[in-house]
Amino acid sequence: MLHIINKSPFDRPTLDTVLRVAQGGAALLIEDAVVAATRGCIAANKVVELAKKMPVYVLGPDLEARGLADRVIEGVQVVGYDGFVNLVAEHRNCQSWL
């Protein structure tokens, strides 16, 4: 399953929920959720935890929009919209953790 997370970790406890519930697959951070994968952000450790369980991807255009493209933590992979589409196609189903 592809786990899509779109809200800031400061706004919603979604990352905790995914860490607790998700049974593998991959995770993709988009929109305001991308802040979680940046250096110095106190939520980054949750992304590191998640990356131990499954590959974690971050949407590049959302990082660039927020001026955060040069602050991505190690262990996650930045993808574009084409990568987003591929991830959706590669997984049998998706859960958008709104």
Binding site: E64, G67, A69
Partner: peptide, 9 residues
């Protein structure tokens, strides 16, 4: 934050 480039979105 400095350096915002929202063209892609």
């Amino acid at each position: 934050k400095k350096g915002m480039m929202p063209k892609g979105i």
